[in-house]
Design a protein around this nucleic acid. Sequence first.
DNA 1: TTGAAAGCGCTAACAG
DNA 2: CTGTTAGCGCTTTCAA
Lengths: 362, 362
Amino acid sequence: MEKRATIKDVAEAAGVGVATVSRVLSGGSASASTRERVLAVAAQLDYRPSALGRNLRQRRTGGLGLLVPDLTDTFYGQLSEGVLACARSSGEPVVMGSTGGDPEQEAELIGMLLEQSVDRVIAVPSGDAETWAPAVRAGMTVVFADRLPPEAVREEEHDRDPAEHALDDLLLLDGLAARPRVPESAARPLDVPAVLADDRAGIRTAVRYLRGLGHRRIAFLGGPGHDRRAAAFREAVGAPVDEELVVFGTGSRDSAYAAASGLFQSRPDLSAVVAGGNVLGEAAVLAARELDLRVPKDVSLVMYDDVPWAELCAPPLTVIAQPGRDMGYRACELVLREGTRRARSVVLPTELIIRGSCGPRR
Amino acid sequence: MEKRATIKDVAEAAGVGVATVSRVLSGGSASASTRERVLAVAAQLDYRPSALGRNLRQRRTGGLGLLVPDLTDTFYGQLSEGVLACARSSGEPVVMGSTGGDPEQEAELIGMLLEQSVDRVIAVPSGDAETWAPAVRAGMTVVFADRLPPEAVREEEHDRDPAEHALDDLLLLDGLAARPRVPESAARPLDVPAVLADDRAGIRTAVRYLRGLGHRRIAFLGGPGHDRRAAAFREAVGAPVDEELVVFGTGSRDSAYAAASGLFQSRPDLSAVVAGGNVLGEAAVLAARELDLRVPKDVSLVMYDDVPWAELCAPPLTVIAQPGRDMGYRACELVLREGTRRARSVVLPTELIIRGSCGPRR
DNA sequence: TTGAAAGCGCTAACAG
DNA sequence: CTGTTAGCGCTTTCAA
């Protein structure tokens, strides 16, 4: 970087002290004439206060971190757009990292953020509580989006008012580190606010819809981080759950395809599948095609995530839409507001968008 | 952020001077015993050198900036993944911004990067040379990816190798706007290296393919930044170009749809369209369907960008694939290497992937 | 091989 | 209202 004008240069050129310049530029008190002169000189010199100096002085970066598993997944693209939009409107730089769904890379990136003194981060976590402990311990404000680390799951939910499942969810997640009897020694659950979609309601609605169409053998095809959705699925189909119908890929498109294909082949009796995310939905469509299964004639499909191409698919995909962009935006708001008041988790509603990929059981 | 251990803490605890700690940690010389002790203490204190202090001292952030128009566009997602991957392997943090294709937002983000002392940036530019002038003037190392700002013209390139059409392309593109006689006063052309796909060859191949299928009225559906592709298209179809068949959207999905729909309606005689990017391809498919045009029976379609869903489309889309991830990776390499030696632009090959969206002229 | 000391650009006391 | 000063955490001469 070439040499830029510093506050000292401005001060000299304006014939004032550096403190005055600092004050003027950050809206402190100053006489009109001084302010004017300083401003003029600053503009003339094209002076831009260095965030480096300021941050060092204030011992914080002021920026945000954003960690997602894969920017190639449209949903995370939407979510990131939300975060970026919110951050920009607050003038906060955001340091971004893609973890590839790998806890180790995630840990590495967390370390990098720590080094940068980035003290607020929004993440779609891939690692578990242990991965995130260093961040929390270091005093980072973290907000999870889209999902929670596996260990951050709190204990069982006793069932209740069917109309209030979102609230239920809130209770569930936030709920606390400290429910009665968690051994001290166990990995301390993280107490981190999160912005999530109402997976439970979303899945339930989808399963009911498929049930209404006559489907009885419904499968769930998930990826990393889809445990809550899988749990919701199990709950929605009710006991006894045929565990063979709940399968997981490991995150890559290939593994998603393998999982889908394996599922279709090992259980030709299934008549419907719920894909836990758009990459899995993609895989399901591909695998079905490859095996000459017609959608929805031979198999019905509903996919989590509404992405533009869902509509272009043949047939257009019925989806559980979650507001990716909003989720990102909200998460960013939470992380920015934190400090003011302890942030509460947020659960956003999903919507079942019925297109053409589900039909009556054959 | 809670208080972290500083270099001073480590120095004290190890009973050495701060300079020694600094040396040890950055691989300088030190006696084995000292080194060991310092390392032990550092580990024990969980010491992490603060990038803030280091950067201030060295007057640079060491990080990279990455500016793209829209993370929701899968191609930019791919490109970003490439950049992030390369940056991570070099331990560089990347500050990301989404411009929405808006030059003003882009300028704002550039200002933000300047403030952060981020002195190296990779961008898919939305603004023109004027937008980027401040960055260059400030001494930033910038590398463009995927496209060039409209005004970004460059110096002549001599020397070529007949086998290297890529070079040819560089000439072509870079060439135009201002050959020899550019008045000094005119907006100084940017001299910025770039990583581009071989649009010219890509488009030419596609057009030839369509020609071979019997198509004569071929349209080009572009978006912002697709001027080079449009130019290549004009060149490929040859004079006289029917300018009504070259239409542009403004970047949003809606406007892309409007452009596509308008095109189909105003020129029912066209039999094929080349979409300049995946968002435009998406729009074309949608618009065609809405107008009851069958692909490829009524209209053939080839889309720039290979994205996972192209294969899921009905019919699967024939595409001009460009290596988005590689482009990002290469761009990052360029920006990192710069300083060592002046970086040269890179043109990566495209590939026509024939699937099912093109058929003989009806 | 090591330590002391001088800042990098900025803000926040504290005086004047 | 304004200037002086003391660092923030680190790297880097420069001596010892």
